[in-house]
Design a binder for these strands. Structure first.
Lengths: 133, 133
DNA sequence: GTCGTTGCAAAGCCTTTGCAGGGAA
DNA sequence: TTCCCTGCAAAGGCTTTGCAACGAC
């Protein structure tokens, strides 16, 4: 990562604009809006480089597979809306570390994945007539 | 799944003997100890069938990928020991459901993955001389 | 002009599927 | 004997890699 390229700029710009964890498909589609020739292999290579550089971190989500998010946030977890399929970062952590595992287990890390309906989709479900009026 | 076969019996026996979540590699290796001809495709097909039947459930683990465990346990989570690489089921749930997500998010499911060192590996680390004496 | 990066295509994993032969009932 | 199930091999997704051409500096 010694030279600045329009491809990598586009990938980073996608993350800045979306401000949420993204999968390869999203990154590629939106990156191509900026650099039409953008190739899958280039995206994979740059994502890997940006993770190594510490600009992104990789998440292996149980439902969504591999997604990437910008680094720099505090410890947090993710909420997957299975209506719009977006992933949301939730600040804070409802996991009490001390009573988390039985005697003898040394807990070094934990990951919590929530899923359900996000506020936006929930509003649309409850009040669909608003959208249609 | 209308006929009983030695292959499927072997796969189920592996789960009974190990009594912990298992990945395809483990299932295949240990199943072959019972039925030498056991094929990967057969394992995949039977795992899928046993999941549909409700005898197994599938876990998409962030570090281990796809693993399977016997059904019938209460709500629980998993601990991954990154020394022996085994997955342990932990009873109970340290996630307080009410304060789990901000206003507006409807939480329907959650999954918690812990990782660290299991009691056995921890004992070996602390007292390695016992093993060697 | 260098040599880091890209695009393309091929190749690697893991998992699924098509098909003919084998075995349970 | 029937036809479900298995083994084998080929094919599907997702991701990585080899290589020649491009382009940042």
């Amino acid at each position: 990562m010694k030279r600045k390229t329009s491809q990598r700029e586009a990938i980073q710009e996608v993350f800045r604009q979306q401000n949420r964890p993204l999968g390869i498909e999203d990154i590629l589609a939106q990156g191509r809006a900026m650099v039409a020739s953008l190739n899958q292999a280039t995206v994979y290579r740059n994502l890997k480089a940006l993770v190594e550089k510490g600009w992104l971190s990789q998440i292996n989500h149980p439902s969504l597979g591999t997604v990437y998010e910008r680094t720099g946030m505090e410890h947090h977890h993710h909420f997957h809306c299975h209506s719009c399929n977006h992933l949301f970062c939730l600040s804070g952590c409802p996991v009490s570390a001390d009573r988390i595992a039985p005697e003898g287990f040394v807990v070094e890390e934990h990951e919590l994945f929530l899923s359900g309906i996000c506020p936006t989709c929930n509003a649309e479900q409850v009040l669909p007539e608003i959208k249609n009026s």
